[in-house]
Each structure stands twice: as structure tokens, then as C-alpha cells.
Design a protein around this nucleic acid. Structure first.
Length: 682
DNA sequence: GAGTTTGAAACT
DNA sequence: CAGTTTCAAACTC
């Protein structure tokens, strides 16, 4: 009935707008009134009611649908069935009960994951959220205890109307991914509980603002849709903790249970926080702990908070067989590793053992996962702690500047970013619907050990990998397309053969055939100023009209095809661009890691706090990989230069639109603090 | 638990 | 941007 997913999203959006007859004007007026400080609660309630009526519920349902369908998709794929997304979507609407069952079956785990390890992540994200939404306009945390909405009223509400719309793009909707947080676990958080815009049942109760609400830059980016420049983050502690909760509570309960809503905005953006005072998640966490994934999977619990970043809400979903494997694997672990894993499971997140990186580099698993280190970490000289959040955020920003996707999940769900064709073909060799976004580069491990990120993530190697002698048991790409591309590039005489090879690549598992057009790019460029992989994918594909040369670009055809409305799904999670492109051999140099966005940020941004660690104290013998990745910024830069449409929208737009995170403490910048720490360290 | 191997990340 | 170094996890003994 809805036709394509895009149309479906559009219809839903339209419907959402109907259901949300809250014009920008009304909202603005309300905001102005609210700025007078007289109607804060009224406004809040007003907003909340509107949102609740047509947005929250829909989003929850949407998320449930999405997750359920993804889980079902995964299972179907494992069963060798073709998952018909469109039908599934329609069907899901027609039979919510069945969907509920699917969700419950397929996503029980997700809740557990979401529960665990989130705290640290939220703390981590909290700093950004806090600074981003509050301090950016407040002198002190206290100053916002009553007025987070106030100060930004006019711009805040400009586009609330489109909020629902954005939410209906359930793949783009980050807000609903940001779920399940135990509000009680922010003891040391500097973020004040504040009562701004308190709404709902407990409207008079001070509700803690959770940080993890998902103001991670990437998350923000992905939560934005073309039709809306509204960023929304919602969070309700208990109700989305698990699919069961999600469904049991029902949307009404969700709204009811939400104890507060905070709206704030930066640069005309609007943030909607729906926080819950419920403390159920903790219990749920405990209850679900046994279902937790292994430590080393690339889908750590913390990752659940990042899921939305890749718009792969259900990639954490795991089939029963996978769970069994996990258990078996766990049973076979050596005592040492078992302890580590147990510790991980009890902690809910990774523990690092960093000694020299100060846990401020991506070497650190905690840092890379976007969480603070905890006491159980064995790290030395750790700065990845809440007390150093300025430094952490600063460095994190710098890393993101270099690689905007540095903190995004490395494993993405093909089910999300794949067209039916893609799924059909890809599953021939890849049992998991997920794949490593950037691919591995293994040389010796043959992708059979956990050195291999693909193997570690329990996903098959894909065309994005540059591994040698790959024997990944989770799926093996017959021959790295990269190699063929290289051969082609280096031996023009073999062009004809390579063309054939390229065609074969297109048809090879993991490779999707697409028919890019500039028209599509144009539309995509309108979609959203995000660095979402889709845009990169679309661009890369579109730019490669000589598509045979770029067999690797994985792209859901559905995403490439511009919808009549310009709506695209952000469902695609990964963009795997050929190294060939990455190396600038193509007309559009895209980086393989998809990190892409270019920033006008000085490259040499090595934090002083880290400079100390750069002193080599010993010579380490190392061999360089034969095939190197391309640094994203440069590639992106070139990409932009050559892009008629500019795709400038990318992340750069976001960064421009968004203010940099103001220092938590206004009296000194992070650099100074960094120096301070460094001095202390010395 | 110490030492080695490995490949990602960072650096030059 | 290719090559090199650093790093910490994974692995072996």
C-alpha cells in the first residue's frame, strides 16, 4: 500500500504532520511567550502533548517495527529466505501483533545491550549534550535549571512540525535509538537536574537531563533529515529498555511515564528530550545481562548507543544460532579470557588496558566506544574519565575532525543498507547481515583470528576488505575486489578482462549493482547536510558513472533512486568505497572508510596531552600494510571540489551549523586544561 | 604472567 | 599518500 520505503516514509511523514498540527508560528509564539518566563510549564506541556500525541508514539512504533523487521530480516536471511522489506513494512502495519512477536524474539538482546554499558557512554555523551544544549547558552549549569528552553525559544520551535516527519524515517531517526538509560547512573555527572520544560505526569519533578541523549555529532547528523533541520533526541529510561518494555508499555505509557521534556536548540535546531524518571532499566539490565554479547564483538553494549549513528538500529539483534555460538564460545574460553569476558559482561562494556595512550586515542577501546573508562579498566594514566571530560571531548572532537566516523560503529548491518537484490546476493557468502564498515586489512591472520575486526565482529569479510588470504568463516569474498581494481589500474592491457571481472564483482556477493545518476545525487544532496553514509554512497556511486570501475561501492539501489519527494532512507549504514576510489584513482576520490567529511580544521591537532606519548621510547619493528587507506578529509575535499552539487552538505555543514562544544567550564579552554593535565602528569 | 604477534591507528 | 611507528588487543608459551 505504501509502495517503496521512501514513499512509505513520506506518507508517514505527511500523516505525522497532520497529526501534529503544530505550526512553526504557533511554536514560535509559544516560545516567545515562554521566553517571558511566564509560561514555561504551559509551553512544555504543550510541546509535550503535541509530541506525545503524534510523534512519540509513532516513533516508538516505528522503532519497534524497524527493529522487529530487521531482526526478522536477519533471521530470514539466515534461513535463506529473501526478505521483502516493502512487504514486511506493510505487513507489519497490518499485523502489529505479529510484529510484536518478532520484535520480542529478535530483539530481546538489544534491550539488554542497550541497558548495559550505556552509562559510561551516556556520561560521555552527556558532556556534549550538556555543553551543546545548555552551556552553550548558559553561564553555568545552574543557570539552566529553569530555562533551557527559554533562551532559545524563537529558533527552537521553528521546525518542530517536521519533527514527526523526521522521526518517521525510522532509519534516520536517531532519537529512538537513544534509549535505555539508567538515570540513576549519573552520579558524578556535572549536569544539573533541571526542571526546564518539565512536562508530563511528574512535571514538577526535577528530572535529570541525560546526556547520552544522543548529541553525539554523528548522531545528530544522522537524526537530521532533509525536510527537517530538527534534531531530536528522546529518551525514556524504562520504556525502551527492551523491546518487551517497549511493547508492553505501549506508546501511551511511554508518554505518560515520561517525566520531563526538554527542548532546547542551538543554531536553530531543536532538541527534544523526553526523559523518564523511571528506574526500571537497571532491573532490566540485570535481567538481561545473561543475553549479553561477547566482549569482543564489535557490537558492544556501548555500541547500542551508537547504533543510530549508523542507522542500524537492530544490528545488535542476534539470531538464536548466534547466541548459541556466543555461549559456546564463552564456554571454550580460557580462564583468563573468560575472566576478562566475565568482567566485561558484568561491567557491561569494554575494559581497556591502555598504558600509553592515556585512553585518549582510538587505541583505547573504551574511548573508541565512546565511553569513559571505569575503575575496572586496567589502564594507566587514564584521562578518559568524567573529570577530564573537557579534554576527552576536545580530543574526541579532534579525532572526529579527522575522521567524522571514528566513533561510529565499525560494523553495520547490510540489512539496513541493502536493497533486496543486495541482500539476496550478499547472503550467499555472508551469513551475517552485518559487515565491517571499513573492512579489514589483515595480512597474516587470514581473518581467522580476532585480530581481524571482521572476524571479531563476527561478520564476513566484504569487498571493502583488503585482507590477504582471507578465510573468514563468517563469509569470504572470493577475491578482494580491491585486488582486481588494482590489477586493472596497474595493467590497462587487462582492461577487458577486468571489466568482466568488475561486472562479476558487481554480481558477486556483497556487491550491489546500482545505476547511479547525477539526478540522484542531486536529490541526495538535498536530503540532509549529513555525513551519513548514504550520501557518500550515493555520491560515490553517482560520480562513478563509469560504474564498472567501481564495482565495490555498495549501495542500495533503492537509496540511489531519488524518490519523487526527495526522501531517502538513511537506512544504509555503510558505504564501502573501493580502495581504488580511495586512492584517488577515480573521478571522485572517496575514502574507503567513509569517514569522508572534510573540515576546515587544522590537521595538526595533536592534543598536547597526547604529545607526550608520541615519544618513541623503543623501536618497534613494523611492517607497513601494502594497501593503505586514504585519509578521509583529503579525499572528501577533492570530492567536494568536483561535485557540482557539492555534497557539501556533509558533515561540514553540520559542523558549521553547530556550535562547537563550549567548554564545560567557561573559564578556560580545553587546551589550557590539557596543558594543565600534562604538566600535572609530568 | 611474560613475551610475541597482529593489525588498526597515528604519525612522518 | 606511501611508508613507518605506535599502540593495545589477541594470542602463545
Amino acid at each position: 500500500m505504501f509502495g517503496s520505503p521512501e514513499n512509505e516514509a513520506v506518507l508517514l511523514s505527511d500523516q505525522a504532520e497532520k497529526d501534529l498540527p503544530l505550526s512553526s508560528l504557533e511554536m514560535s509564539q509559544a516560545a516567545i511567550n515562554q521566553r517571558d518566563g511566564k509560561k514555561t510549564e504551559e509551553l512544555s506541556r504543550f510541546i509535550f502533548e503535541k509530541v506525545r500525541e503524534s510523534d512519540v508514539n509513532s516513533c516508538l512504533v516505528s522503532r519497534a517495527q524497524n527493529c522487529g523487521e530487521n531482526a526478522a530480516k536477519v533471521n530470514l536471511q539466515r534461513a535463506g529466505c529473501q526478505y521483502d522489506e516493502k512487504n514486511a513494512s506493510s505487513q507489519s502495519r497490518e499485523d502489529s501483533n505479529e510484529r510484536q512477536q518478532r520484535v520480542q524474539k529478535g530483539l530481546v538482546k538489544e534491550g539488554g545491550q542497550n541497558e548495559r554499558g550505556i552509562r559510561r557512554h551516556l556520561q560521555f555523551e552527556a558532556a556534549k549534550a550538556y555543553k551543546f544544549t545548555v552551556l552553550g547558552n548558559s553561564e553555568s549549569p545552574n543557570s539552566l535549571t529553569h530555562d533551557a528552553t527559554n533562551s532559545r525559544s524563537p529558533s527552537i520551535l521553528t521546525n518542530l512540525k517536521s519533527l514527526a516527519s523526521s522521526h518517521f524515517d525510522n532509519r534516520a531517526s536517531s532519537s529512538l535509538q537513544d534509549v535505555s538509560c539508567d538515570t540513576s547512573q549519573f552520579p558524578s555527572s556535572p549536569y544539573e537536574s533541571f526542571t526546564s520544560a518539565q512536562i508530563g505526569v511528574n512535571s514538577t519533578t526535577s528530572a535529570p537531563i541525560h546526556s547520552g541523549i544522543g548529541l553525539h555529532l554523528n548522531r545528530i547528523s544522522r537524526s537530521t533529515s532533509l525536510s527537517s533541520d530538527i534534531f531530536s533526541s528522546k529518551k525514556s529510561t524504562g520504556y525502551l529498555s527492551t523491546p518487551e518494555q517497549m511493547l508492553e508499555h505501549g506508546s501511551n505509557n511511554i508518554a505518560t511515564n515520561s517525566s520531563s521534556i526538554l527542548t532546547s536548540a542551538v543554531s536553530g535546531k531543536i532538541y527534544v528530550y523526553v526523559a523518564s524518571s523511571q528506574q526500571e532499566s537497571q532491573a532490566v539490565t540485570e535481567a538481561n545481562s545473561f543475553t549479553f554479547h561477547s566482549t569482543d564483538t564489535m557490537k558492544p553494549p556501548c555500541h547500542s548507543m551508537l547504533v543510530d549513528q549508523e542507522a542500524a538500529p537492530c544490528e545488535v539483534g542476534m539470531s538464536a544460532s548466534q547466541e548459541t555460538d556466543e555461549v559456546e564460545e564463552l564456554n571454550q574460553l580460557s580462564p583468563k579470557r573468560k575472566r576478562r569476558r566475565d568482567a566485561y559482561m558484568s561491567e557491561g562494556c569494554k575494559r581497556c588496558n591502555c598504558r600509553r595512550s592515556k585512553c585518549l586515542k582510538l587505541y583505547c577501546e573504551c574511548f573508541a566506544a565512546g565511553v569513559y573508562c571505569v575503575d575496572s579498566c586496567a589502564c594507566v594514566n587514564c584521562y578518559n574519565k568524567p573529570e577530564f571530560e573537557d579534554t576527552v571531548l576536545d580530543i574526541r572532537q579532534q579525532i572526529e575532525a579527522r575522521n567524522p566516523l571514528a566513533f561510529t560503529p565499525k560494523v553495520v548491518d547490510n540489512a539496513i543498507d541493502s536493497s533486496p537484490n543486495f541482500t539476496e546476493e550478499q547472503d550467499l557468502t555472508t551469513p551475517s547481515s552485518a559487515r565491517h564498515k571499513r573492512g579489514c586489512n589483515c595480512k597474516k591472520s587470514k581473518c581467522l583470528k580476532r585480530y581481524c575486526e571482521c572476524f571479531q565482529a563476527k561478520v564476513g569479510c566484504s569487498s571493502a576488505c583488503r585482507c590477504e588470504g582471507c578465510k573468514n568463516t563468517f563469509g569470504v569474498t572470493p577475491e578482494p575486489v580491491y585486488n582486481r581494481a588494482k590489477r586493472w589500474a596497474s595493467h590497462p592491457a587487462e582492461k577487458l578482462d577486468n571489466v568482466k571481472g568488475a561486472i562479476a564483482c558487481i554480481k558477486a556477493p556483497g556487491i550491489i549493482h546500482y545505476s547511479p545518476t547525477w539526478e540522484g545525487i542531486s536529490d541526495i544532496s538535498k536530503l540532509t547536510p549529513l555525513s551519513h553514509p548514504c550520501s557518500r554512497t550515493a555520491f560515490s556511486s553517482a560520480s562513478s558513472s563509469n560504474s564498472a570501475k567501481i564495482p565495490q561501492a555498495q549501495l542500495p539501489s533503492s537509496q540511489l533512486q531519488p524518490s519523487g519527494t526527495g526522501h531517502f532512507h538513511w537506512g544504509c549504514s555503510a558505504v564501502i568505497v573501493t580502495p581504488e576510489l580511495s586512492e584517488g584513482k577515480g573521478p571522485n576520490d572517496l575514502n574507503s572508510d567513509g569517514a569522508g567529511a572534510h573540515y576546515d580544521i587544522p590537521y595538526d591537532d595533536t592534543p598536547e596531552i597526547l604529545e607526550e606519548t608520541s615519544n618513541p621510547t623503543k623501536v618497534v619493528k613494523a611492517s607497513s600494510p601494502n594497501q593503505k587507506r586514504v585519509s578521509p578529509p583529503q579525499s572528501r575535499s577533492r570530492l567536494r571540489e568536483r561535485s557540482p552539487t557539492g555534497l557539501r552538505s556533509g558533515r561540514k555543514f553540520i559542523l558549521q551549523a553547530m556550535p562547537s562544544f563550549p567548554p564545560l567550564t567557561p573559564h578556560r579552554n580545553s587546551k589550557e586544561r590539557t596543558n594543565e593535565i600534562e604538566n600535572d602528569d609530568k
